[in-house]
Design a protein around this nucleic acid. Structure first.
Lengths: 316, 316
DNA sequence: CGAGTGCCCGCTCATTTGAGCGGCCTGTTT
DNA sequence: AAACAGGCCGCTCAAATGAGCGGGCACTCG
C-alpha cells in the first residue's frame, strides 16, 4: 500500500478527477458522464475504479462523537456479527468507570434506535448497563423484561435497571423480584411459580431485543462471580469458566457450562440463542477474553465495546 | 446550506456512519449491507442518501497539480461543454506570461491524452499555444495540420508550432507556408492552389482534434488584430468584433462576421463547426468576453483556461 | 372520534451498473 | 514474418440500483 502509487499522466489524472467529481459530488450517473464526455460507460467505470484505487477520490466518514467506525467494521467482519459499535475512549478517561460510561453511552444510543414499540426488550445487569440507563434519554414505549434476578449493589442491580429504562420509555416493566442464583433447583422452580416472577419469565421467549453485559471470570471482573460462595466459585474457575452472560457460564473455547442452569433465575442459553437481537455490552481489556468466549459460543448479534477491548479482539 | 444541519440522533448517526463505511470504503453492495444488518435495501439506500446530504460522508477529490475541478465543472455545466479544464494560477504568478505558461501546460496535458494515432490534429496559433508546445512531452504519432497561415513573431507563429508538435510525436506535419490573411480573395485562391498549401488544406475536413487559441478584440489582446492595417482593424472593431479564432471573427452576440473569410488562409467557420473535438485555449481576464462570444457562436467542445477567466465566465 | 396530514416503509418496474468474455491492437519474441 | 503476450476496449447478460407509488401508522385539528 504505497501512498502515491504510479504517477499517472497529468492528462489522465485530470480526466479521472473530472469524472470522479461528476460522479461522486454531482451525483451524475456513469452513463450520463460517458455520454457527456464522449466516453463509453465502461471507460467511465474503469476511470472511477482507478480513481478510488489510486487515491484520487477519498471517502471521509465523519464519525459522530467517539464512534470508531473503522475498528468497528474490522471486528464486525472478523466475527461475522451483524453490528459492532466501538467507542474510542481517550487515554485520560481510561479508567474502569470512564470506560463504562463511554460504552454505556454508546449502548444507549444503539438501543434507543434499535428498539421500536413492538419490541420486547430484555435487560440483563451490570455496571455498564447501569451506566447505559443513566445515558438513556429516549426509548420506544415497549415492554421491558428483566432477564435475570438480582445481584450486586442495590443501585446497580437488574431491578433498578428495568425500572429506570421502562420509566424513560413509558412502557410496562416486568421485574424479577428474586435473586439471580438460588440454593437449589427446587427453590428455583418454586420461585418461578410465583405470579410476578412467572409473568416476567413467560415473556422470556418473546424477547426480541436484549441488552446484556458480559462478565469475565478470567481475569475476574464479574459481580456475579464475586457473589458466589468461595468454594463454588473456585470449583467453576477450575472447570475453565471464562465468561458469564446473565447466569450462563461459558468456557474459553465457547462451550457452555450447565452448572448453574437449574438454580438460576434468568434466561438460559436456549433462550439467549433464540433472541433475534442480542446486544453484548462490555468494555476494557480485562473483558476481552470473556467477550471472545461469548462470541465463540455463538451468542450476540451486536457488540458495543471500547477501543481497548476491540483492539485485543481483532487479533483473537 | 448550513454546516451542521440537523443534529441527528446519535444512534442514527452511528448507523449511518457504519453503512457509509461499508458502502464507500469496503465497497459492499447495498443489498449485502442490508442483508448483513437486517435492513431493507431501501433503508440502506436512504441512509446513504442521508449520509451524503448531512455530511456524514465527504468526498475528497485530490486534484492533481493546479487543476480546479470544481470551477471546471461549474463552467462546463453553465455552457454545456464536453470538457472544461480550469488551471488555478496563484496570484504571484498571475502575469500574462505566467498565465500562458500555466494554461499551456494544462492544454498540453489535455491534448496528449486526447489525441490518438488515428486522429488528425489541427493546430492554430498564439502565444498560449506556443507555451503549450514547450510543455508538450508526448503526443501520439498523428498527422499534424496547420490550420492557419503565419502571423506574429517568428518564434511563435503556426509554422514553428506545427513543427515542434509533430516533432514530439513523430507524426507527419502539414505546414502552411503562407500568411494568415492576404490582400484579396484572388490571391487567396491562387495560394490555395499551390502544392504544399493544397496538401494541408485538403486535410482541413479530416481534422478530428483541433487546438486553437481565442484572440480578443475588445479589449484588444490579439496578435492577428495587431497585424492588420489600422483602418481595416478599426472598421472591424466598429462592426462589433469581439473575438477571433484563427481568422474567423465573432461578434459579442456570437454571430460570425464574414469579412475576412475570402482572404484568410485558414479553416473557416464551417470547418471549425465540423471538427469533432475543438479545444479552445485562452487565459486571463482580458479574454473572458472573447471566449464567451466564441462559445456563444457554438464553437468549442473543450475549454482550457485559468481561474481568473473562468470566474468571469461562470456568471456571464 | 374521525378526517386530514405528513412520514416512513417496502413494493414494482425501468434503468444503471458490474462481471466476465472475446476481439483487436501493439509490441516483442522466435 | 509469424506467433505470442499483454493491455485496452466495448459487448452481453445478470445483478444492483433508483424513481415513483401506495399502504400503513402516528399525530393533529376540528
Amino acid at each position: 500500500m504505497r501512498a502515491v502509487p504510479p504517477p499517472l499522466s497529468p492528462g489522465a489524472a485530470i480526466l479521472a478527477a473530472t469524472v470522479a467529481r461528476r460522479f461522486y459530488i454531482d451525483g451524475s450517473t456513469k452513463s450520463e458522464i460517458a455520454d457527456g464526455m464522449g466516453l463509453s460507460r465502461f471507460k467511465v467505470a474503469r476511470l472511477l475504479e482507478q480513481s478510488v484505487r489510486e487515491g484520487i477520490v477519498k471517502f471521509e466518514i465523519a464519525t459522530p462523537d467517539s464512534f470508531n467506525s473503522e475498528l468497528s467494521e474490522i471486528v464486525r467482519k472478523r466475527f461475522g456479527l451483524r453490528r459492532v459499535v466501538v467507542i474510542d475512549v481517550p487515554d485520560e478517561e481510561r479508567t474502569p468507570a470512564g470506560i463504562r460510561q463511554a460504552v454505556g453511552r454508546g449502548a444507549a444510543a444503539v438501543l434507543s434506535d434499535l428498539v421500536s414499540e413492538t419490541d420486547v426488550l430484555g435487560i440483563g445487569w451490570g455496571r455498564t448497563l447501569s451506566a447505559m440507563s443513566l445515558e438513556l434519554t429516549e426509548i420506544a414505549r415497549c415492554l421491558v423484561v428483566q432477564m435475570g434476578g438480582m445481584v450486586g449493589s442495590v443501585a446497580e442491580n437488574s431491578l433498578e435497571l428495568v425500572r429506570k429504562i421502562s420509566e424513560v420509555g413509558g412502557g410496562q416493566a416486568y421485574p424479577l423480584f428474586v435473586p439471580l442464583v438460588v440454593q437449589d433447583a427446587l427453590t428455583a422452580r418454586s420461585l418461578a411459580g410465583q405470579p410476578g416472577v412467572a409473568a416476567a419469565m413467560k415473556l422470556f421467549d418473546s424477547i426480541t431485543v436484549a441488552a446484556v453485559a458480559v462478565g469475565s471470570w478470567d481475569p475476574p471482573d464479574s459481580q456475579m462471580m464475586a457473589s458466589l460462595p468461595v468454594e463454588e466459585r473456585e470449583a467453576l474457575v477450575g472447570k475453565g469458566v471464562a465468561a458469564e452472560v446473565l447466569a450462563t457460564l461459558i468456557k474459553h473455547d465457547g462451550t457452555v457450562l450447565p452448572d448453574l442452569q437449574d438454580r438460576a433465575m434468568a434466561t438460559g442459553i436456549d433462550v439467549l440463542r433464540g433472541i433475534p437481537e442480542l446486544v453484548l455490552i462490555a468494555g476494557g481489556e480485562s473483558k476481552a477474553e470473556a467477550v471472545h468466549a461469548v462470541i465463540n459460543a455463538g451468542l450476540g448479534t451486536t457488540l458495543v465495546t471500547d477501543n481497548s477491548l476491540a483492539e485485543l479482539l481483532r487479533t483473537m
